[in-house]
Design a binder for these strands. Sequence first.
DNA 1: TCTCTAGAAATGTCCAACATTTTCGGAATC
DNA 2: GATTCCGAAAATGTTGGACATTTCTAGAGA
Lengths: 222, 222
Amino acid sequence: MIFSAKKSEDSTIVELLALSLRRDIAFGTLLPDQKLKLNELRTRYGGSNHSMRETLRILTSEGLVEATAQRGFRVTSATEDDLRDIALVRVEVEKIALSRAIELGDVAWEGRVMAAHHALQKAEAALRDAPDDLTALEWDEACRAFALALLEACDSPRLLDTHAKFFDQSRRFRLALMREGKLDWAARKARQKALLDAILSKDKARAIELLQADIEAELKPK
Amino acid sequence: MIFSAKKSEDSTIVELLALSLRRDIAFGTLLPDQKLKLNELRTRYGGSNHSMRETLRILTSEGLVEATAQRGFRVTSATEDDLRDIALVRVEVEKIALSRAIELGDVAWEGRVMAAHHALQKAEAALRDAPDDLTALEWDEACRAFALALLEACDSPRLLDTHAKFFDQSRRFRLALMREGKLDWAARKARQKALLDAILSKDKARAIELLQADIEAELKPK
DNA sequence: TCTCTAGAAATGTCCAACATTTTCGGAATC
DNA sequence: GATTCCGAAAATGTTGGACATTTCTAGAGA
């Protein structure tokens, strides 16, 4: 196992394998379209035939891996078209969820959003200071937590699931941009702050506009 | 294997098992919240430990089954809340997809929509004549095909996937309504016809309105 | 250069076994 | 009588090896 992942409460091998593989796909250690041969994966990550196949099925359901009968698994391709498609769905889903969250969210939710925003600011600052892999991982996690916190109050488990799925699919692209120094940190920071303010003042239209801008900013990097 | 499913081009055991299980969940042979013990399933549907687990992972990714670490699998529950949540997501996703499809669809697409509508009409008529399981199955398939045809031209694979996922989750509810005689066939027929007309005349607003009505009709049966 | 075909590689499937975890019924306790 | 606790039974999760089938590939033959 490459990353000795923290053993969370649910410590089945399959889940641990999934963690490692997810990370390696997000970070580009496993490249888009790369064929995933079971034996290679097993020598690299451990686990039996069975466990590895089950892991790959899970990643398939998350859209990170694609399965073809009799032809095994490969990392989902990541073309410009894919990025656009993911962004399209994300924009639509997150618009709806954010709109509902602003309607339904209570003070506790606002608090969690503020906390997530604060953590994200810290993580972005840390990453600009020390752009190593570990910090990048934490930054990536903070992005995810912030996005999730925003929508958490939408009161629709399936909407949240769908958001999470496509957000996770977008990670590869965001991390790649970050590595290439193509993220406009100042603009991000401004957008995130404005978004937070819009949410706290229950300005739905403005919040949605900013959210959309944030997603689409990753479509056409500077 | 209960249903001797037609061996489509991809005849892996796992896919065949998935077909049988999907059907039995949709038809209520496997009830919501029912625990799915591997050994029971294996004696009933065949397949090895390995294949059955993989099958269940696939159904999990489709939202038909839920997995809990160390506690196995169970059929996803199907409460009123679930139905409402599914309908909510379906309405939003299908609105977006249909809107795009009407913008982007060409004549060939319109033809496919008409064909699917025609087939659906036939299937509904057949079902009202002879409400047996086989006819129900064909009707269900025609519903699915029609819904898919409508959105097909939206030019977003992920939007289509998402639609399909939640449509499939809604099948159980629709089939249950049908069995209980709670579907208003006349209203359905009228809506479907109106929807087709709206699409053919590129009347986006009207089409979306009708689509929404069609989904929400299953929320509050007569 | 192209096609075709064996052989190699990889996938999909099954079985049998075992470690670990959960479940469940009943004994002991309050 | 209700609750807690415990141990046996059941179920899940994991492994390794074996084998059939399919796909891939490199080289022989046209």
